[in-house]
Write a protein that binds this DNA or RNA. Structure first.
Lengths: 154, 154
DNA sequence: GTTGAAACGCCCTGATG
DNA sequence: CATCAGGGCGTTTCAAC
């Protein structure tokens, strides 16, 4: 993982439609070794996938909420039930196990408050939770999937 | 935006490398009309971009934090300063204007706690903030950029 | 690492029904 | 919408340096 690899990552995080020729040009390489590097980055799991990003508003999914959850107990069986429960809920796009107050933080995407309420009922009926605190986003001010890769410093 | 459009979105959100032939097959269309739909979804801004996703651990960016911020005042000038301030900080991958307690919620990605601390100092030195509360993620339990598109119900 | 080239698949366009 | 046909681009592999 050197400077050129990081350049490749930076470019592909911004635009995965970039052709190999243009990518190679931008990172200062010819096509063949550039292609080999991209392959390696994919095979070693640095680049995990290539996806299309969709505007939530355009598909009527305007409500994003962050839901902080505290577990009822901290047994392995609760964890399993939690894992199974959230697996079936497509509205949950992210799950983070947290340090501090809450045990988990969920990012939840729904159509509107009514849909969120339906989700909330399902969540609290499915799982045994000590506490659930929902915070609602009014506006997505900034959003990127690109990780802050520093090209220069390793 | 009909059933087929939503199917296309679902597929491309999962895997943007899908060839047109296979995509067309999966959504039950022939290539030409499928291609036209994809074009339209891109031109109308439903599909905003295609990106490569990177494993944070693999690039030594293992620390994700959620930072809740309250503004010093709620003037337009503060907003401007805020917008300018966060624009230069690559560690901030998401900014949400929130309802409730905090004014903004930031998702911040850094290498480790030392890097986060450096970021934190920069943040609090750059901006006038009433309060800043950081919560740290221990584990990314689930993560997807795919919005929960329902194929059947509009 | 570089260049050059070949083979193949895929994208994209057009015509037709 | 489907199908067919074609040109051109891009990916992928190989050879040689």
């Amino acid at each position: 993982m050197d400077r050129i690899d990081r350049k490749i990552i930076v470019e592909l995080q911004r635009d995965a439609t970039l052709s190999l020729a243009r990518l190679a040009d931008r990172v200062g390489l010819s096509q063949t070794p550039c292609w080999k590097r991209v392959q390696k980055l994919e095979q070693t799991g640095v680049i995990t996938r290539r996806v299309a990003l969709v505007d939530p508003q355009m598909v009527s999914l305007g409500l994003t909420a962050f839901v902080a959850i505290s577990a009822n107990d901290h047994s392995p069986s609760w964890r399993e039930a939690f894992a199974r429960g959230i697996a079936g809920m497509a509205e949950i796009t992210e799950v983070w196990r947290m340090a501090g107050e809450a045990d988990y933080l969920l990012k939840v995407v729904t159509r509107d408050m009514a849909s969120f309420d339906a989700f909330y009922r399902r969540l609290t009926e499915t799982l045994e939770l000590k506490s659930v605190t929902s915070s609602f986003a009014m506006e997505r001010v900034a959003y990127t999937t690109a990780l802050p890769i520093a090209i220069d410093e390793p």
